[in-house]
Design a binder for these strands. Structure first.
Length: 351
DNA sequence: AATTCGGGGGC
DNA sequence: GCCCCAGAATT
């Protein structure tokens, strides 16, 4: 059986109608690919539409402030992507005349663009014969070809090599580099899923090594996972009329320069903190009254937060004594600020 | 080669 | 609750 035409024909019939599949604007496709890094389609759709309405072109994105870009990204996670996107837009405006580079190396040189994103944008937007390997492709190939290597560099090279071998050289009918790449990912997302794949619906089932050998549940081999760390924090909701007190996070590190409610981490038994280092700790008087508790997760950290209503004293960085950048934000403007996920979650229950 | 970086949908 | 996602940059 011819793998490529078979899967492309399946894709032509079963492809989901997603917003970024209704355009051939390389900029729009680039935005979608940046948002889709480690993020599910369902989570991306509303962000994609808002983001493109707000920043419809490379130049619009380049001319925006990085704070506005991060604010539009607020809640999507991996905020480095937003800052990289803004930086890349500036490079494109200044060095590429506002057009996304079609050259693979030039595109790869942009911040936030790696092998996957380069392959995806070049193949989908420009029809270039470039491969992609994402989590879906890795799973589909591992099962289809029976790759039982443990995760790591050698397997990655094997996957990219196979992807390069299979990607069509040109477009013809349903078959094209972009369609093939998207078809592989669509198959992984909808049929060849991590758990309980729907092999009955798979157009490649008759060719699948894992299927033939009854190993679909064993492939691909799972990556080693870090042990979760439990973190306790106290979050302050200080209100002054319709306004809420916010603090800006440090310029570097996780969630850099984003706004959050004054947050303090409770040290563990060994006196250690993990997410809110004591040198950035915020001094405030946690009021006696606890509004509610929320759970949150940041990578392998499991956060349990108690949310307190209180009148804030001066909000200060504890170790240095330097005043942190703070502001009183009206409730109605919170959506327009780059607020961390935990703070948004804490506020949701407070009002 | 390992770690770091968010958040949530879906099972 | 846990898994893992249309990854890239940093160490």
């Amino acid at each position: 059986m011819q793998l490529v035409p078979q899967l492309c024909a399946w894709f032509a019939r079963h492809r989901r109608d997603l917003p970024w599949r209704r355009t051939r604007d390389p900029y729009a496709i680039w935005i979608s690919e940046a948002m889709l890094q480690q993020t599910r389609v369902e989570a991306v759709v509303p962000y994609y539409e808002r983001f493109l309405a707000r920043f419809p072109t490379v130049r619009a994105l380049a001319e925006a402030s990085v704070d506005d870009v991060v604010a539009a990204w607020s809640g999507l996670g991996y905020y480095r992507r937003a800052r990289a996107l803004h930086a890349a837009a500036n490079e494109i405006a200044e060095q590429h005349g506002g057009e996304l580079p079609r050259d693979r190396d030039a595109f790869l040189a942009l911040p936030g663009v790696g092998p996957y994103t380069a392959g995806a944008v070049l193949s989908i937007a420009h029809g270039a014969s470039e491969p992609v390997v994402d989590g879906n492709v890795a799973r589909v190939f591992s099962r289809l070809f029976g790759y039982d290597d443990e995760p790591g560099g050698p397997l990655q090279r094997k996957l990219w090599s196979k992807a390069r071998e299979l990607v069509p050289a040109r477009s013809s009918g349903d078959v094209s580099p972009g369609a093939w790449n998207q078809a592989l990912m669509e198959l992984g997302a909808r049929v060849c899923t991590p758990r309980s794949p729907n092999c009955a619906a798979c157009p490649l089932a008759s060719e699948c090594v894992a299927r033939r050998e009854g190993k679909t549940a064993e492939l691909p081999r799972p990556a080693k996972r870090r042990a979760p760390i439990d973190v306790r924090v106290e979050v302050l909701v200080a209100e002054r009329g319709p306004d809420v007190l916010l603090v800006r996070r440090p310029a570097t590190g996780r969630m850099a320069r984003m706004w959050e409610l004054p947050t303090r981490e409770v040290p563990d038994e060994d006196g250690r903190t993990y997410l809110w280092p004591s040198r950035h700790a915020v001094a405030f008087r946690a009021g006696e009254h606890e509004l509610h508790a929320v759970s949150h997760a940041i990578t392998h950290h499991r956060i349990r937060a108690t949310v307190h209503a209180a009148t804030a004293g001066k909000v200060r960085s504890r170790a240095t004594g330097a005043a942190l950048e703070t502001r009183w934000a009206h409730r109605d403007e919170l959506d327009e600020l780059g607020l961390t996920g935990l703070s948004r979650k804490a506020l949701r229950g407070a009002f």
